[in-house]
C-alpha cells in the first residue's frame, strides 16, 4: 500500500510538473501580406471554410481549444501544427514560386478528394470543420481554377 502511494505521488508531481513546461503558441496578431486569403482575394464562403477547416494547422494562427492549457495535450497539438505547417502554410502562400504553388494546389485537391484532410481526429472534436460533399466540390473547383490560372 505504501509503494502504491509513492507511485501515485510521483505521478502527481510529474503531472503537475509538466504543466510548467512552456510550449510555443502558434498565434500572430497581424495577417501577413503573403496570406493565401489576401493574395488570392478569396470569396467569403470559401474563406470561412478554409479558416474553419484548415487554418488551425496550416497557418500561423491557431484557434486553440481550452484543453490546450493542459499538458501533454499542448505538446501533442504543437507537434501536429508543426507538421501541418511544414507541408503547407497558408500564411506564407505569397512567397512560394509558381512551381511550388502548383505542387501545393495539386496536393490540396488530392487531399480533399481522398477525404484525407481535414484529419478525422480533428473533425472528431471540431465537428464544424468537416467538409460536406458540396463543400468539397466547391473547394476543389476553386483550387483547380487557381491552379489553371497559375500556369497560364
Amino acid at each position: 500500500m505504501k509503494t502504491v502511494k509513492i507511485i501515485l505521488l510521483i505521478l502527481l508531481v510529474a503531472f503537475v510538473g509538466i504543466q510548467f513546461i512552456p510550449t510555443e503558441s502558434n498565434q500572430t496578431d497581424i495577417v501577413p501580406v503573403t496570406d493565401f486569403l489576401l493574395v488570392n482575394n478569396v470569396p467569403n464562403n470559401i474563406k470561412n471554410k478554409l479558416q474553419l477547416s484548415c487554418y488551425d494547422c496550416h497557418s500561423n494562427n491557431t484557434k486553440y481549444p481550452w484543453y490546450n492549457k493542459i499538458q501533454p495535450v499542448a505538446w501533442f497539438l504543437e507537434e501536429h501544427i508543426k507538421d501541418g505547417k511544414k507541408e503547407l502554410n497558408f500564411s506564407e502562400w505569397g512567397s512560394l514560386t509558381i512551381r511550388r504553388k502548383t505542387s501545393k494546389l495539386r496536393s490540396i485537391i488530392k487531399q480533399i478528394e481522398g477525404n484525407k484532410m481535414p484529419l478525422d481526429s480533428y473533425t472528431l472534436i471540431h465537428r464544424d470543420a468537416k467538409l460536406s460533399e458540396s463543400e468539397k466540390k466547391l473547394l476543389i473547383e476553386y483550387m483547380s481554377d487557381l491552379k489553371e490560372n497559375l500556369n497560364n
Partner: peptide, 16 residues
C-alpha cells in the same frame, strides 16, 4: 489524457 493523445497520434500516422 495520455492514452487519448497516443491513440490520436497513431491515427494521425495512418491518416496523413
Amino acid at each position: 489524457l495520455t492514452a487519448m493523445s497516443c491513440k490520436d497520434a497513431k491515427k494521425e500516422h495512418n491518416n496523413d
